[in-house]
Design a binder for these strands. Sequence first.
DNA 1: GCCATTTCTTGACTTTTATCAAGCGAAATT
DNA 2: AATTTCGCTTGATAAAAGTCAAGAAATGGC
Lengths: 243, 243
Amino acid sequence: MLPVSAQKSMVLSHLRRQALFKPLSDDALAGLAEYAALKREKKGTVLFSAEAPNEKIYLVLSGWVKLFRETLAGDEAVTDVLSSGGFFGEFGLSGHDEMPYGAEVVEDAEIVSIPRFLLAEEIMRNSLFGMAVVQNMTRQRLQRDMEIEHRTVQSAPQRIGCFLLKFCRGDNAGPVVLHLPYDKTVVAHRLGMQPETFSRALAKLREETGIRVRGATVEIDNLQKLVDYTCSACSASFPCADK
Amino acid sequence: MLPVSAQKSMVLSHLRRQALFKPLSDDALAGLAEYAALKREKKGTVLFSAEAPNEKIYLVLSGWVKLFRETLAGDEAVTDVLSSGGFFGEFGLSGHDEMPYGAEVVEDAEIVSIPRFLLAEEIMRNSLFGMAVVQNMTRQRLQRDMEIEHRTVQSAPQRIGCFLLKFCRGDNAGPVVLHLPYDKTVVAHRLGMQPETFSRALAKLREETGIRVRGATVEIDNLQKLVDYTCSACSASFPCADK
DNA sequence: GCCATTTCTTGACTTTTATCAAGCGAAATT
DNA sequence: AATTTCGCTTGATAAAAGTCAAGAAATGGC
């Protein structure tokens, strides 16, 4: 275990790197870091379940964290899977004192938690920061709108194609090799389908677009072919501004 | 047509009534009203299409407005249908200068538009207002999360039941009579299904829960029965806090 | 390196939703 | 009042996705 001071300065340097925190002064950041806690969590750890008390904002530094809602019947709907720079628990800001979703680590992660009242204070104090938060929320809402669109108008193979394209750069013409960042089961739920459907849909996508899949590795020889197949059922087209 | 001054004061009184604008001073409100425009629009009017320039924030005073995204293939995904108090166009705040969706009046509506830079200025000036906007955005994001959940885990009849329950008060034990606020076709798309599916699913719901439907009128004799049938596939249960 | 566990795939089948086509009924137009 | 339009329903059929079950492949622990 690192000494406390060393850990604090590490947290501070991580916070400084977050786009959202750019408008904050060094003093303000130091104030956050003072009360922030950094944790390393293993895959499978449930950070909290829905309806847990909501007092902190969490920021993902590395790894992947799944946000989900569970029905009485036991089905789960994954609303998002976050990586570095993603944060959650912000509903505390709007007066919800219970978490509306659960959070589970799906790939070993480092997570910083910050008491939410500190952020609320900072929003009030620094209007530039407030504006940055508004913009971030707005962008997130837009992403949710797109998610709703995807789930209603895209077929399962198209949703997978869209997911893969999120990891491709727009200027990349040649062959692309990428690795699925977390388990296929999680990807499946992230895309609103069952693992079996995912498996079959991936096979179909392979057939239609010539991509090659071996385990978690995906090779895309002809990016345009994948784009043509995937984005025909979308309002945006690759490279999408909001991913 | 009313004289300009009378119209301005009408706009002002409408703005004053909005929960979101509560933190604003009278001066600030008057400033907004000065540059705000009130319009009455007929059902069927397209306020703007996706990719239109995004310079205003719109606030619905009465009637209903549908927000939707259209794919290249011509399918449309309705992300929301707004009534009094709902607003849209707020993506301008996060630097998007194109509307990410289209907006169409689905029931005769009164709509106020406000130049977005005025609101951006006010967010910067009044941190209480900034906080209110953050909270509003946060709540909207949560609603989108629930929407995603509903579309993945609820069946078509359940989604309709859930929709009907939004118009019921939690304390209402006895029979409830309500009217669908806009065309069934719009409700169908709002719930992410085809009109034909909506029609059949409504018949199924009627069968399962004993509700009676005649045109746009729905009579619910046994609210609990509807709740039991509908909310079993949801993480929240009636009466839901966020509708 | 081997075994145990987990994750993924495949097959057979069911359920749900979409699609295409036709017909009904209420409301607006003339 | 007749006609046209639009919204809604219904039927037949197809496509998509879910479910249950079994087996294959990959992964992690020892």
